[in-house]
Write a protein that binds this DNA or RNA. Sequence first.
DNA 1: GGTGAGGTAGAACGATCGGTCTTTCTACCG
DNA 2: CGGTAGAAAGACCGATCGTTCTACCTCACC
Lengths: 208, 208
Amino acid sequence: MSSTSALAPRDRLLRTASRLFYAEGLHTVGVDRLVSEAGVTRATFYRHFPAKEELIVAYLRGRSQEIRAAVAQIPAHRRGREALLGIMQSVAEDVRRADFRGCAFLNAAAEYPDPAHPVRVAVEEHHAWFFQALRDQAAEAGHIDPDHTARLLVLLRDGALQGGALGNPDRVCDTLLRAVNDLLAAAEPTGGGDASAEHDVRRGTLGG
Amino acid sequence: MSSTSALAPRDRLLRTASRLFYAEGLHTVGVDRLVSEAGVTRATFYRHFPAKEELIVAYLRGRSQEIRAAVAQIPAHRRGREALLGIMQSVAEDVRRADFRGCAFLNAAAEYPDPAHPVRVAVEEHHAWFFQALRDQAAEAGHIDPDHTARLLVLLRDGALQGGALGNPDRVCDTLLRAVNDLLAAAEPTGGGDASAEHDVRRGTLGG
DNA sequence: GGTGAGGTAGAACGATCGGTCTTTCTACCG
DNA sequence: CGGTAGAAAGACCGATCGTTCTACCTCACC
């Protein structure tokens, strides 16, 4: 309450929702918890969001916007291969975070089976955007099959995020980054295997 | 109801739980739905399971047993590489199923954040067993780094199952099997025997 | 100096949650 | 034949769910 009391009620609600929804799940966190931890009354809640479901969608859209902003900050001189490396490295960073609990979007999808549900639509929008972002960079890097590269990177991301929430995060990160390294080395038009051009993925940063 | 009325109440409960929990989620399916669709009364429910949570654990253990039985049926002459391929192909088969909705265990973990919770323990038991099964087969296939092979295969499985529940299942299967093919071809000691493989083997490879 | 939007506070709504209870019926086993 | 265990049927419990409501306060703005 003290850390968020300076914000507007709507922002306090959104910030609290982001924290609780991610940490504990969508169905388990009730409106009571939300309003009490945000220091907001129920009336104020329903003034800003017509239903709890709308807050969930807003939470997901907000998280998506954060990620899109981070990717958009990649400087022009780091496009292509460097960008792919940076994106996947930031995924690894997420996995290592102390409060890491998997992918917010995949977790949300697990709780909302209906593909037509607004929550699921928001999840699939983010997923589709992420694939497109990877595909664009793979194409810029001159990959022979940028679609396949992007699909495989998405698959690796999903696996790392959901598997990393169960097992040892450091090991999962290592496995992920090794795979990314090998994938990029092999999928590049230069034929891969060029030892002098090799970088250690683990040192890269995204947006920093 | 008609399809399960011949079974014992406990089995009807378990079968109904398996169907509903997987299709709709753990928290969204209530005891009312469970008992009414299983054609069982509440008293009977609580005679067999002390709490709904126990039914969830039983559902997960049952699914785990099915998978373990399938893996155990792999004939002796198909151990090692053939076994790894077969296991990953059965993962792809699952993704293509009409009622596919992701991995039952990862979906359950998404709903139960507490690592000490019995549901989460059951999930992690299955995940650990699956890794070990892959590791054993990778070792039998003579892989240089069976731990890495197994970890990467687990990561690919998790990504395919959770990503496949969102996007196009056929495309996800294609991406998965291509990656598995390339991984196995490169991680084997006899490998392709080509010059590029010897460098890749040391680092572990995933590419095409 | 109203006026009204947006905030607080909190009671209350019906529905549903997981779980317990009593009662009656049925099937099996000695 | 009688005894007993398991299941059916359904009322019932307190708690919590998401949601709506009334009542009062505050403050910018015309």
